[in-house]
Amino acid sequence: MTLGILGLEHSKLFRRRLIWIELAAITLLTLLIFALTAPMARMGDGVTSALAASMGWPNGAYEFSTIAGGNSLGGYLGIILVAATIGQEYTWRTLHLWLSRGVGRPRLLLAKFVSILWPLLLLVLASLAAALVGSALVTVVGGGTVALASLDLGRLLSRAVLTAYTLLPYAAITCFVTVATRSTTAGLGITIAFSLLVEGLLVQLLSLASDGVAKVGQFLPVKLAQGLLYSEAQFVQVRVDSAPLAVQTLDPVPAAGLIAAYALVFLALAVWSFRRQDLTA
């Protein structure tokens, strides 16, 4: 039954037009960012050439994670996907259908969540593929050569997995809000508002406050993601040069642990809420 419900969810998900639209969107927008950067590579002044260098081969290829990660395009697309996948089943009453066939509530919701993880990874991989092409484009336009040997493939793939991992808290929060409100719109709106207003605005406000208060910001998903993804010296350097981090970030291991904790807590809340619901016609 567990495999059956997982297969069912997977099958439903990949027949949705939304997922293919999202994959196309993240691919095109990643390419667009590189395409807009490419002409700067020929300008030759300090700032633009430094930017172009950071976006060129091979460093630029790693930049996909800033596009595909949480609190960014990937995160927003992930939120839309989770909210639509779960919320619309309340509207269509298909949740009622699976449950009335003897599927357990926790099993159904967890199968739904697990089946969404694969599309989230695909979003990241699509952005990665586009970033590879884009960074090569920037280098070629700037007159450089694309040296395939300079690319650390293992590091690139591990970064892709970590980037997808940073999407988990957003997916879990969206899942909880959508289940609790039984609404795609609420799931989408509240989680994006959290991402934009609470994480975006709050982090900035916290940075203006005392150090002690500012430290609270490092426990938000966006900062945990930064702690996990930008811990490597090379990336810290790039980020520090371009946009200094206002709030401190945790080390990668505690950051990874807290990301998992966010995901598990909100998923548990979603299951708890789902188990208590009366699913009326």
Binding site: W92, R93, T94, H96, L99, S100, R101, G102, G104
Partner: peptide
């Protein structure tokens, strides 16, 4: 709800 595996149902508008 395991016993529901032996039940078929159509309640209100069909869930599709």
């Amino acid at each position: 709800n395991a016993a529901l595996k032996r039940v078929g149902s159509l309640v209100g508008a069909p869930a599709i």
